[in-house]
Design a binder for these strands. Structure first.
Lengths: 200, 200
DNA sequence: TGCCGCATGTAAGGTGTTACATGATTAC
DNA sequence: GTAATCATGTAACACCTTACATGCGGCA
């Protein structure tokens, strides 16, 4: 059993859903495309961890709605109890930050500002989807509890990232005069036009 | 060209290194195993983006030390200037949190506490590797600058995660009496032994 | 004696993405 | 009429991990 399988079981444990729907919900815990979800659902079904029924719809294609079985719930519970967890993050932004020295100051600022925009957009999307849910349900076993704390986690981390971005932008502003100074010391004679271009 | 290629170019742009060494440094920006690094280095070399020389060592196997070429630096600079960045995080912990309702309160706490331990260990490792570097160099183009801000980013996000963990632990403690109360309302008659087990 | 670290690589297998295939309905 | 959304799937490819192969030196 691979991790995607457990992610799917985890979602189906809260609500029966179609494979198509799963893709959206998976994004928050273990992103996957349809082409990966459908074969995995078939595999889980073959193992008896979930069941499905065809649901006819009007104006839309029919769908297969999957639900978790008792066996599936047990399998999931067992896995969740195991303490180990592997985690990988691959973010192209980190590589670009690592090579930020290759960029001139304008492009460096742009890199960070684009990141801020990107993360803020994500926060807005997050808020939009969360506002539907009610927040007073704080019982640990309720469906809303897990979603609520995962949502809070994402928002906190994203806000921290934005605060870090502003911290970097500050450093970039400060580094400018220092760079100018070092350059002036290096050449000893200077042209005011060049100085202006480096400051503004 | 894939992203790993750019990650390698980015590291080699700061320092010439062997494939074996790259693995350690890659962890912070784009994790990869040796079996993936060596073929990628060969591919980059074939494209003329990097050069290498054999370095003999005493008491250790000889190594191939790679350095970036002018062509490689240009290719990297071009890619870094492009604003788009894709990012994926796949963390089993998120799935387990999503299914936290399946665990009894002790196991739920343990899940979060293990996470705290895990992240704190990572912070310690991070600090240990960073203390070697000097911090007064704040010029944007210096080798240390990028490492310094990436290091700060990681620490900030990890601290935020720990703070979130404590927030969750608090919620778990609060949810306990409420759960008990609801249970009592449900059954109307009760056994003190059961009550004690649910509280402590 | 056996395992760990250094060092470079190949092979096989699993995971994930992009593209293809089909087909109805709704919105611009 | 063209694209977008709903809906399920397969095929080909790219990417990543695990295992294998080799070999020296140091350590318990």
């Amino acid at each position: 059993m691979n991790t995607l399988g457990y992610a799917i079981l985890s979602l189906l444990n809260q609500n029966s859903r179609s494979g198509y729907d799963l893709a959206d919900y998976l994004d928050s815990i273990w992103p996957a495309k349809h082409s990966q979800i459908y074969p995995t659902l078939a595999k889980l079904h073959k193992k008896g961890l979930l069941a499905f029924e065809y649901v006819e719809q009007i104006g839309k294609p029919n769908k297969k709605v999957f639900s978790i079985t008792e066996k599936g719930r047990k399998e999931l519970a067992k896995w969740v109890s195991e303490v180990q967890f592997s985690s990988v993050t691959r973010d192209e932004f980190l590589i670009k930050v690592h090579s930020i020295g290759l960029l001139d100051i304008e492009k460096a600022k742009k890199l960070i500002e684009e990141r801020i925009a990107h993360v803020e957009k994500s926060i807005d999307l997050q808020r939009a989807s969360a506002s539907i849910e009610e927040e007073d349900e704080l019982d640990r076993n309720s469906t809303g509890f897990a979603k609520h704390i995962l949502h809070e986690r994402k928002i906190r981390l994203e806000k921290e990232e934005i605060s870090w971005c502003h911290w970097v932008l500050d450093l970039l502003k400060k580094s400018k005069p220092k760079r100018l100074l070092m350059w002036l010391i290096g050449i000893k004679q200077f042209d005011l036009g060049v100085v202006e271009r480096m400051l503004f």
